[in-house]
Design a protein around this nucleic acid. Structure first.
Lengths: 205, 205
DNA sequence: GTCTATATAACGATAGAC
DNA sequence: GTCTATCGTTATATAGAC
């Protein structure tokens, strides 16, 4: 039925918003219902309990990030272009979904075993072609000896950390909303440059 | 009394462990009592309610990080040595307090207004001497034009992100405990090098 | 100060009418 | 499918004996 799908979808949207903002423990079924503009009982009618609803949201979160990220990482393009794309991906993705990175990481830390199983089942494994590309660049003497894992974490760290620690950044630096946005826009240009000079053979300042 | 202080301290230690691991919403007063090896009523006797106890832990967390970090940042030493010290500080600090960074950042995001006030009251403001030092290095042409804020966030990001996303790093890279530790040890060497080459005038790979 | 017992409130979940 | 009313549980918090 048309109405059926609409309600189910409204619930999922609302759940996504509330769970991502508050986390599993902080989220209230009532608040999700309010956000969806429906009755609390409907949540149980469609998803039986809080756990199920949460898992839908969590899995959707994972699937929103990793396939796209890994697709970029496995592209057949020069490393330099790739880094630019990854940085751009993070900055556009999380402008629209500002709570998503913190949500995924926080909930993973709360239930490591539970999600380790899930992530491996969905086939989230380190992108093969990216690993080979880095190794090749190292072998060709284009970049310093660095593992693909370290290379990736450098990029991800530079992009995600100031998103996750948004409140702290704004507080300590006394930024308002627009100053924070400028700061992040500036980073989008800065990061690829930092990353590449960081893995070059150039010595010292 | 001797016993009095002992109990109060035991509660605070237990609260620190549980709150940092589970967050405010996930923490249970009973679990804190169990961790402390005392009766649940004692928590209320000494700290009246969950909120008070939490704030003690949160404030202790803030005070454990910022004063030390900012002290290093304001030292009268060359920028290069300073970066090394900051990186070392993060890696030693959070080897002992692995949940502390996620805890502080997560709780700040949950109650921005509440903690913004607190942080400004304690006098957590961007270190003046560090800012001047960066500006001087830029002016002297030693490093590229970069704001002190961006410079700091680069370091902090590279250090903290893989600590905060520990479970995710271990899962995606399929690391066990000892592999993760090696990975982090390796970063401690890698990061200062990355940071400095990143702000150099060297062009391209 | 420390314990047991209990009050009180919040939340997830269900029953049943429509 | 959707609502109201309510159950059962769990969590914070308090009362009162010792």
């Amino acid at each position: 039925m048309k109405v059926e799908l609409e309600t189910e979808e409204k619930i999922l949207d609302a759940a996504r918003i509330i769970f991502q903002k508050r986390g599993f423990e902080g989220a209230r079924m009532q608040e999700i219902a309010d956000e969806a503009g429906i009755n609390k009982s409907m949540l149980h009618y469609y998803y039986r309990n809080k756990d199920n609803l949460f898992m839908e949201v969590f899995q959707a979160g994972i699937k929103k990030i990793f396939p796209q990220l890994f697709a970029i990482m496995n592209k057949d393009i020069p490393l330099k272009d790739k880094v630019w794309e990854i940085v751009e991906f993070y900055h556009t993705m999380f402008k629209e979904n500002s709570h998503l990175p913190m949500f995924v990481i926080h909930e993973m830390n709360q239930h490591p075993e539970r999600f380790r199983e899930f992530i491996q089942k969905v086939g989230i494994t380190f992108p093969e072609k990216f690993a080979l590309q880095i190794k090749q660049e190292v072998q060709d003497g284009n970049i310093i000896p660095i593992s693909p894992q370290q290379f990736l974490i450098n990029i991800v760290s530079m992009c995600m950390m100031p998103m996750i620690a948004r409140t702290m950044v704004m507080t300590v630096f006394q930024f308002d909303e627009s100053q924070y946005e400028s700061f992040m826009d500036e980073r989008e240009e800065l990061i690829p440059d930092m990353i590449f000079k960081g893995v070059s053979f150039f010595k010292g300042v």
